[in-house]
């Protein structure tokens, strides 16, 4: 048990963050170099103003027609994505780890709030799961991989919650939590979770097309 613990909290952390950062950079560099080699016209249409106009509308809840058409999904989507970043970055236990290693620290969420937000993320994942199973238009385009990536995202929060409350044996749950987090980091650049990297580009290009060429709104 101890050697597993040492491995997942030691070298594996470095590997996970390394793959995450290098993988993201690699995907972005490949994308941009392929665009400049094969479809350089895309750059000639890209425009900062129109990109920001489009991104701005789509990152604000209810600022687009389609967000307004799906109020529940919109709230869940935004809450989910905000908590997804907020909880791990501002969790006291995570900050303590960084502080112990490098003496860097920042303000933390109160534990009770972090706990509630963790449950919120898990609830959002359940919502996405139910939607995938119940909505015909989502079910039709769902593959096993869609459940897998949902599980990859949910796992660190589920295991983190259980570990915090010390249910089902703390040491095992803690190790599972660390592994789940590492799997998620590694998966981001190489699965559809890469929309974290690419959505801003696809949105910016469509925004530039609509703003500069089509002279119409894209929201």
């Amino acid at each position: 048990m101890h050697s597993v613990y040492s491995f997942v909290t030691g070298p594996m952390v470095w590997v996970a963050f390394g793959v995450f950062v290098a993988g993201c950079l690699f995907r972005l560099v490949v994308l941009l170099s392929q665009v400049s080699r094969k479809e350089p016209f895309i750059f000639s249409y890209m425009n900062l103003k129109w990109s920001l106009r489009s991104i701005g509308h789509w990152i604000v809840p209810f600022a687009t027609v389609n967000w307004r058409r799906h109020p529940v999904l919109t709230v869940v989507t935004f809450v989910f994505h905000i908590c997804l970043f907020l909880v791990p970055i501002f969790l006291l236990s995570h900050i303590v780890l960084v502080d112990e290693a490098w003496s860097i620290s920042w303000a933390a969420l109160p534990d009770g709030l972090a706990d509630a937000l963790t449950l919120t993320v898990i609830a959002c994942c359940l919502f996405f799961l139910v939607r995938r199973i119940r909505s015909p238009e989502v079910k039709f385009v769902t593959y096993p991989s869609d459940y897998v990536i949902l599980a990859i995202v949910a796992a660190p929060f589920v295991t983190g919650f259980l570990a915090y409350h010390q249910w089902f044996g703390y040491p095992v749950m803690f190790i599972l939590h660390v592994i789940a987090g590492e799997i998620m980091l590694i998966a981001i650049p190489f699965t559809r979770l890469s929309h974290m990297l690419f959505a801003v580009f696809t949105r910016a290009y469509m925004g530039s097309e609509f703003g500069g060429v089509r002279k119409a709104k894209d929201w």
Binding site: V30, D146, H195, T202
Partner: peptide, 18 residues
């Protein structure tokens, strides 16, 4: 090219276009 590839890989199968 990359445009096609990115479109296919970024789609998270959410069905919001329906």
């Amino acid at each position: 090219g990359p445009r096609f590839k990115t479109y296919v890989e970024t789609c998270i199968h959410c069905g919001l276009c329906s």
